[in-house]
Computed example of a mutant assay.
Amino acid sequence: MDDVLKDVLVVELGTMVTAPLAGMMLSDMGARVIKVELPETGDPFRAHGGGRYSPPFVAYNRGKESIQLDLRSPEGLANLSRLLNRADIVLENFRPGVMEKLGLDNDRLRALNPRLIRASITGFGNDGPYRDRPSYDSVPLALSGLSSLMLDPQDPRMSGPTISDNITGMYAAQGILAALLRRTRTGTGGHVEVNMLEAAISFMPDAFAQFSRAGIVSGPETRVRISQAYSLRTQDGLLVTVHVSSVQKFWEGLLNVIGRPDLAQNERFATPAARTQNYSALRQILMDIFATRSREAWVAALAAEGVPGAPVNRVDEVADDPQVRHLGTFARTIHPTMGEVIGIKSPIRLDGTRRDNPPPPPELNADAAAVAAEFGFGS
């Protein structure tokens, strides 16, 4: 897998999450990624929590090289042009119009390097009424409707991981790969555009299909009711998730696990449609029963009956899960000055392989001298 994009050069002008994630995904497939950072501070994510090697920066920047260029100066722009002249991809998540202000509009880039692929990530697109608005993760989540599927309107507390940032970076990487494939046929680059709003909307096609086909306006429980998914507290105060869907054998298996075969004859629960309609009542029954045994006991019982279910692992428990250990999901590398760095390997395997030991994220400007000499930077 780490040879797929061998000899592909990516110049990353990104900060924070969206573009850095896309760059990291390309690096995991073997691309060389030179991260161009701001003078003095570098990527703002570096300083989260102090220092210049914060956990958020580490999360999104493995396997890259780092240089600093002042793109407000003629020298910095000239050196960037030297990079772009030989690059395959320039990846940026500036606000619309910034590249043009730098003199790096599509016509200029095409003249500089006809094979160059520009990938632009924005909050809302390069035109339209929201074009110039600032955007962070929670904003497109709200606009897209995705937040409405997660928030309790009576107690709207925001929670959970970064979603729209991450999926936008993933869509950007997909678009870049498509542009690279097209270039093998045409010999020319192009402009990949991805925005956070549409990425968030695309992340939940089922909700829009439910509305357009059935008139159902989805809310926080719509999918879990249809899917018959439950998170239940056990006797030891831990959580278990069960997901029986509409598959009859899973429903029957769950009834065997909880010792309540009589529920199969209860008209409120006899069919998938009835269980969806009476989700809250069934959930309360399951909550009462699951509170009588430990998480470990319930997980073992569900597995024995072949019922889809799992412990709700905390973040500190995931690496020790037997399947995660078997998969070798986490990578441990040693940075020469920052010590041990633990990251997540790419979940994509090709012919059973992936990059097992991706290089750690770079220190700020760590590769300046080598890159300057290679590309003939002026002072």
Rank of each mutant, 00 (worst) to 15 (best):
residue 151 L to H: 04
residue 212 S to V: 06
residue 98 V to R: 03
residue 173 A to Y: 07
residue 360 P to S: 02
residue 87 A to S: 15
residue 97 G to D: 03
residue 168 T to N: 04
residue 244 V to I: 15
residue 28 D to Y: 10
residue 259 G to Q: 15
residue 62 R to Q: 06
residue 55 P to E: 11
residue 224 V to Q: 13
residue 378 G to L: 06
residue 191 H to G: 04
residue 41 T to N: 12
residue 220 P to G: 05
residue 376 G to T: 01
residue 302 L to T: 02
residue 101 K to D: 01
residue 175 G to A: 08
residue 194 V to C: 09
residue 181 L to Q: 09
residue 278 N to F: 05
residue 258 I to F: 14
residue 221 E to L: 12
residue 149 L to I: 05
residue 185 R to P: 01
residue 232 L to R: 08
residue 261 P to A: 12
residue 285 I to R: 12
residue 249 K to Q: 12
residue 79 N to Y: 07
residue 357 N to T: 06
residue 79 N to L: 04
residue 245 S to N: 13
residue 328 G to M: 00
residue 279 Y to M: 13
residue 242 V to D: 05
residue 221 E to P: 01
residue 257 V to F: 13
residue 143 L to S: 04
residue 266 N to M: 15
residue 268 R to A: 15
residue 41 T to R: 13
residue 12 E to I: 05
residue 94 F to R: 00
residue 260 R to G: 12
residue 168 T to H: 11
residue 230 Y to A: 03
residue 62 R to Y: 04
residue 28 D to W: 04
residue 352 G to S: 09
residue 143 L to C: 10
residue 237 G to N: 07
residue 301 A to C: 05
residue 229 A to V: 09
residue 9 L to G: 02
residue 32 R to F: 05
residue 15 T to H: 15
residue 357 N to K: 11
residue 271 T to H: 11
residue 340 E to I: 03
residue 343 G to I: 01
residue 297 A to V: 14
residue 6 K to L: 10
residue 120 S to K: 02
residue 51 G to N: 11
residue 222 T to W: 08
residue 267 E to F: 00
residue 241 T to A: 15
residue 119 A to C: 14
residue 303 A to W: 12
residue 204 M to V: 11
residue 330 F to D: 12
residue 188 T to N: 14
residue 51 G to Q: 08
residue 104 L to V: 02
residue 114 P to N: 09
residue 329 T to R: 13
residue 321 D to T: 05
residue 215 G to M: 11
residue 202 S to A: 11
residue 156 P to M: 05
residue 374 E to R: 14
residue 97 G to Q: 01
residue 264 A to I: 10
residue 302 L to A: 03
residue 105 D to R: 00
residue 302 L to N: 07
residue 2 D to K: 09
residue 211 F to R: 09
residue 359 P to F: 00
residue 129 P to F: 14
residue 367 D to V: 07
residue 105 D to N: 08
residue 152 D to C: 01
residue 65 E to Y: 04
residue 150 M to C: 13
residue 251 W to T: 07
residue 20 P to H: 10
residue 334 I to W: 08
residue 199 A to M: 04
residue 368 A to I: 12
residue 341 V to K: 10
residue 244 V to Y: 03
residue 136 Y to G: 00
residue 280 S to V: 06
residue 43 D to F: 02
residue 96 P to Q: 05
residue 232 L to C: 07
residue 128 G to K: 11
residue 37 E to Q: 09
residue 88 D to P: 08
residue 165 D to W: 00
residue 332 R to N: 15
residue 38 L to A: 02
residue 318 V to W: 11
residue 306 G to L: 11
residue 319 A to M: 10
residue 76 G to T: 04
residue 218 S to Q: 08
residue 89 I to G: 01
residue 171 Y to E: 04
residue 335 H to A: 06
residue 89 I to F: 11
residue 378 G to P: 00
residue 164 S to M: 01
residue 183 R to D: 14
residue 52 R to M: 15
residue 282 L to K: 05
residue 337 T to H: 10
residue 229 A to I: 10
residue 208 F to D: 07
residue 70 D to S: 08
residue 95 R to N: 01
residue 269 F to A: 13
residue 208 F to V: 06
residue 238 L to F: 02
residue 72 R to C: 04
residue 360 P to M: 03
residue 313 N to I: 00
residue 29 M to A: 01
residue 22 A to S: 14
residue 289 I to P: 12
residue 276 T to W: 04
residue 267 E to I: 01
residue 280 S to T: 11
residue 20 P to M: 10
residue 191 H to S: 04
residue 329 T to I: 15
residue 265 Q to H: 14
residue 372 A to K: 05
residue 72 R to I: 02
